[in-house]
Design a protein around this nucleic acid. Structure first.
Lengths: 184, 184, 184, 184
DNA sequence: AATGAATGAGTATTCATTCAT
DNA sequence: TATGAATGAATACTCATTCAT
């Protein structure tokens, strides 16, 4: 009896899958607790495959967070694109905070991890920069540039504080805060 | 020739010093890159001393970030305590953002590291909770509770976006955004 | 849109080029730091091409060092062939040491790498043996066999010591040493 | 039954032993084939012990080869110190080549490995430099400085060629070559 | 005939923690 | 009380080689 052959797998899209799995591992263990081993195991891929497809952890994290930011920005964009007027836009922003940003603890955690990396790594700061730029662009569909910028900052702050606060703000509070920042 | 003595140093305040040095190491290498070894070396303390004084990294990080948050809150408090009226309070908030929060890249980085840990660890979430509570308390010297809360969130968002943005907001912009949120 | 073609390159002389590039990689990184990957990259050749053309690193190194030794021996031969008498032969030997052997740090390094391999591997010891034989043959155009042999050894020693010595011998010293060994 | 405890060993002189074992491993496998693992195994020491005692492979190799060169130089010195006159000194040199340098294939191999490293690494070039300096100093007990230098180079060449040559020189040949270089 | 993808063994190194002194 | 030495588990990464295409 020969041992089972090493089971060379035909696995297109493997690279792509690894990138997605990376975000899951980071969400579960933090960047600090993320390793090639954990990702490889979660993706059901041999360890050697990791450094075959990516030059190192840095590249992998950059790719993964770029994907994350793109998805956030897409959702942001879609919400505001669907709003017909300023009033609907305001509702869209509230929904965005309460549903998109706070709805998934996973995403909250990942956002912080991204900011922490971005504070050190220019490559990831570029990712956050592009994300912010797209957000403001989306807001400018309905608000003037200055308001868009203030609003973007407020959204950020509301999301963070709501996430960290054991007694988070109500939707009414969030709506009220937003009303103030867009009143010109 | 006698061998060098065992160098039993009289070193009161060692425990304290280690806690402070921990923040420096985290600022320099991130939580992900922080280790007992690096801290011990930076504090000029034998490695064995680390696990002698602290049960592990978790305790050490909690102590260090508690100290950090206390210092931030103290400064916040002092600024608002010094303000005589709402107008001065607004100026104090602007100064707080531009000088305290954005003045030191070290502090920006450490704040993110703290949030990232807090998102996972209840002990550190308590640290951020207490910090937020003190901030709002300080703001309530001059603003009603709801405004204090909105303002606190806006401060957070302005600080984050300004730190990550290669083209950060001007002081005028920051002032304008704050004006809107406190207009009742 | 068709996918990019498989880039089947018409590349005659590829095998040859790989052998030459191998010497460059060894010169740059040492035998210890040489790998199929580095050679493939330096030769602009797919990794799979390495084990397609050569059975393994041993074969590749043997081929490369054989080529190196042949080139050295050719130069040695040419120099002594050009000498008309014993006096010119002596000058040729001095030039050989100072110009051929010491002129290029690359060649000095490669020579040691070869000796180190030869000390272990009979295939490469055959390479050094043949090289030595050709050197002596060339010297015997002008000197008796015993002198040729002594001279060959002295050349070796002068080259090594001059290469490793931060304060290497002058040409006059080299000439004087050679004069002594050929005086019968 | 508890599993046997991890058997923390009291092992003074371990650091020293590792350095010696390193030379054995290099002699057996070459620098290219030497790894922390092999050394640790040969020294009967856990892998983690290697990088505890040494910053890395470089430091370890430097220490090991320094020790090797010192031993060679000691023997060289002893031989020439024991010679009463120039004639005995000449005999000492012959014995040195035939017994010390060629007597042990291990030492021949190690010498090449050292030269190969020295060609790249200044730290190891300093080791060879110091060794050469001591050799010449020893020779100057009996010969003038220029002769000492030529003789040192000839010794080197005779040793290398004899080691690589399947038909090495006889003692008479070696003696004759040396006679020529010291005849003034 | 040629190669890109794949993989398990192996590399150096870092690490938190233990414990004899 | 304090610590230097020790250690096994874990880290990222490199590698020669295989093989389906």
């Amino acid at each position: 009896m020969r041992p089972t052959p090493p089971a060379r797998r035909f696995d297109p899209g493997r690279r792509d899958r690894i990138i997605d799995v990376t975000l899951e591992v980071v969400a579960a263990h933090g960047v600090a607790g993320t390793s090639h081993r954990k990702i490889a195991e979660a993706a059901n891929v041999p360890l050697g495959s990791m450094t075959y497809h990516f030059t190192g952890m840095d590249e992998l994290l950059t790719l993964a967070f770029t994907r994350l930011a793109d998805r956030f920005a897409d959702r942001f964009d879609a919400r505001l694109r669907a709003a017909a007027d300023a009033e609907q836009a305001q509702e869209a922003v509230v929904a965005l905070i309460t549903e998109d940003l706070l709805g998934s603890p996973r995403d909250v955690v990942l956002t912080y991890e991204l900011y922490t990396l971005a504070a050190r790594d220019p490559a990831l700061r570029e990712v956050t920069r592009a994300w912010m730029a797209r957000s403001r662009q989306a807001l400018q569909r309905h608000f003037d540039p200055a308001t868009a910028r203030y609003l973007d900052a407020l959204i950020e702050g509301l999301a963070i504080h709501s996430a960290l606060d054991p007694d988070p703000m109500s939707i009414d509070d969030i709506t009220a805060a937003i009303s103030r920042i867009i009143s010109t």
